[in-house]
Amino acid sequence: MTVALARLEQSLTALTRAKRLGLVAYLMAGYPDADATLRLGRIAVDGGADVLELGVPFSDPLADGATVQRASERALANGMTVADVIAIARDLRRERDVPILLMGYANPFYRYGLPELARDLAAAGVEGLIVPDLPHEESSDLAAALAPAGLTQICLVAPTTPDDRLARLVPPARGFVYCVSLTGVTGARAALADDVATFVARVRRYATAPVAVGFGISRPEHVRALRGVADAVVVGSALIDAIDRGGEHELSSLVRALREATA
């Protein structure tokens, strides 16, 4: 395993031993504007995020709900490109010692060129990618480009993923295993899915990497409910909603509240 990934896994594993959940914060790069992302990223890290995910905007984000769709549209209107997101990640890495992942759809990454992408991500200090429309069966090209650069594609699993498929996908997963908590798109929900604990337990049987839960998680009580269930939680749309409600101040207080709920 490479240094970067080892750091990502070790930081999450260390938290598990410390009886605390890891907090993964998602921000859409370029939302509400390009300059703001750097500031918002700092705020998220200083407020207690253990890992940052930077969203790469796409014209057709079919796994995303209304909040991320709107943020993505705005970011594109601001001219945000893959190269811009990598530059933001690089700047954040220089200022804060935090693992960073990029989350975005396949087409802009292909268009950038996979070898160039891997090279530039590694140079920027990014740990890996989350690509929601690139399932295991379609990821061999990306995997081949990322591996030599020491990067990984985060493995996503869903409540609909059957056990025999988990048994194939999960054991080789690096960084963390991303459990999509519900059948649906991203977006804040009032309550956690009923079967999330059963689902995560099912995934854990096959996982060697830490297990994170995302999609729909928006409130401190959701985070508290996942203690002892998962190793980390991913919060995205709720942070964007907070920025819309009250800008940097509101983002800071939500991240701090979520972080408090991790222990």
Binding site: H136, E137, T161, R165
Partner: peptide, 12 residues
């Protein structure tokens, strides 16, 4: 061609 889909839909 192929199946460039979210994991949730792959079993479907």
């Amino acid at each position: 061609g192929g199946q460039y889909l979210p994991e949730t839909l792959m079993p479907a």
